[in-house]
Design a protein around this nucleic acid. Structure first.
Lengths: 210, 210, 210, 210
DNA sequence: GATGAATGAGGCTTCATTCAT
DNA sequence: GATGAATGAAGCCTCATTCAT
């Protein structure tokens, strides 16, 4: 992931920035952004507290950078997944890939899903270009597939993101089956993609054929 | 709102609790839960800081109580809106009423939409019975309307909530047209209900008739 | 001192503000402004750290307030000392009273003399009206006494303040005779007034009578 | 300035030490000693942060060295200025040269005038031999000129330094006329020497001849 | 019940100093 | 000698909560 950026400014530098970012992701996912302490991120990254401030302006910047880094990653993977496919297949690939990513990177998903919202308090001042990109890509697929007859593509894109996000949230919040809490069991988020696809393509209509 | 609830338990007491809750809603919506100060809530409610602790255990309890209070309200309104309708109409009424509520109570919507997420860090320890109720009602409608053939009703319910929530978020974050920021203009959230209905009922399929 | 201000806003409030201010004076005098810790001031004042911020905006404000408070006091005493005197006597009273004040309130003198300078970094942004008052009073005396023939009164006022300030500094920095350091013994600062008076009135001229 | 001193000990080494010292002077003058960052001094000097510690023990040492270096310079110039003059002329030369130096080297003056005070917190532990030399020279002149009849020479020396220092401070703090702040305009510090001389020699006495 | 002054624990951040290269 | 990335101690300040009135 972001292998190329490792060459941006010498190998060590990016390495450490990356380590801090991943540590922040784990810590933010574990405790939530506000409850998380910068010193915990440092500990998790194996660096001194002050080192974080060599790479990030402040705690907020850590969160914003995390978003940008992850969303860019998500967008890159989604683009790779839909490349060369027919429009109708692109939509399915987009949905499946997104949920697969959530499945593969739960910490990232938690931050993107849960903390992103909270940081919408941030977002009010900070326009997230990568997220706009995400919606634009999805909207483009819908238009290309001719799925914008009845509902504007940008609106559909938002609604689809809403579905995916809510599914991701439910999955993320469901504790692992082992920790015998009161939490619902983890469902199969990858198979849930079919539900989204079904809903988006033909709706929940009772009678498919009359 | 909920003027009648002022009679729930004693006349003045509930009044003050209510005032604090509404003040908290405005403050949390304005600053976000974590950034909001208890003393600001007190000021907004016109009571002393200490008074809040006569009605609520702590700041977290204020947020939780707010959720329960609002979700109960939302559920009550939704139940009233679908009462006596045919299943297919119930779904439309549910969707329209929900978005209408968001439109009428933006502060409540902001807290429910934005802060609820963030407090899912809370939610991990705290199961929200009113939200479960919300999903159960929606799922029940889907089942009654026979819209659970291809997708389990509980899954559809979540996805529909996801759509509604995302639309609410987009609307809430869109600044009022007056404050000429860089924010997108407020769209008509009430009319957006039709898009949700269309998507849920028949999907985005390109060719409605072949 | 400033007995009247005790009635400004209830008795307790001013009392505590006063206590903090005097504690800050002692701590700043002991360690210097920058090296002094807010928590030490709190400890010295017998209040919690946070209490300081109920009365002062921040650490800088503590210093500024100290200046204003002390200089106002100094000005009041000086005015009382010169009241009703003939111009020539006023000058002598002014000088004697100032050095007497330094003698009586060494902590205040240290802050005014030593920290005031350093805070001239502050002063660059903050115009001290009380100090301006001090100079104006002194200049007025010189003019009234007809001592502005050869040198503008405002310039003389500054030079006289320079002498007084330097004497105060030398006296303040001289350790008490007990602490057998390498520091010069404390001289009699009150008697030093005569030197200032002599210098200002007739200069150091070798031959008084020819 | 002090180009000759570059040959004191090795050619390049002293050069770098010198550069750091002059950089520190500018930075300390600009921000004040405490607010100044070692890394800013390094940047100004065009060396790495760590390099500073090859030439100075620590930040304090940087300030102390600056004093010694500058005061030695000042003393050297003053001695050169009074050399070979008659005692009465020596005093005038001393005063004029000092203020001329302030005029020519404002950054140096700011550090000597403003930061020296603040570092009297340092001074309590550190006896400044060069400053003692300064006072001894001035006292010697007074004694030689027979101006120690009524006031001890060492006391007069201190008072004269106080006048000079205060004038320097007022001049240093007066913003340049260009930066249209609320600051008083720069006065002519060189001409101010005449006021000091007048005051020291014959006082402010109203009637010069009786 | 109501008040709001007081508390004090704790986090973010800075920055002098070090040391491996 | 020179570098500058890394360190980590330490302080200012905030703010949820308490409790005497």
């Amino acid at each position: 992931m972001t292998v190329h950026s490792a060459a941006d400014r010498g190998p060590r530098v990016t390495d450490k920035r990356e380590r801090i970012l991943l540590a922040a992701e784990r810590i933010f996912a574990r405790h939530g952004f506000f409850a998380a302490k910068v010193s915990d991120v440092a500990k998790e990254a194996g660096v001194a507290d002050g080192t974080i401030y060599l790479y990030f302006k402040n705690k907020d910047d850590l969160l914003i950078s995390l978003f940008e880094r992850r969303m860019a990653d998500v967008n890159a993977r989604l683009r790779a997944a839909i490349e060369g496919k027919a429009p109708a297949d692109q939509l399915r690939a987009f949905i499946r890939t997104y949920l697969q990513l959530v499945h593969d990177e739960p910490a990232a998903a938690e931050v993107l899903t849960v903390e992103l919202r909270q940081s919408s308090k941030f977002m009010k001042e900070y326009a997230n270009p990568e997220f706009a990109d995400f919606l634009r890509t999805l909207g483009g697929i819908l238009t290309a597939a001719g799925l914008d007859r009845h509902v504007p593509a940008h609106a559909s894109a938002r609604m689809i993101f809403g579905m995916l996000d809510e599914i991701a949230l439910a999955w993320v919040l469901a504790k692992a089956p082992l920790g015998g809490g009161t939490r619902p069991k983890k469902f199969d988020i990858v198979r849930a993609a079919d539900w989204v696809i079904k809903l988006v393509e033909t709706g929940l209509q009772a009678k498919e054929t009359t």
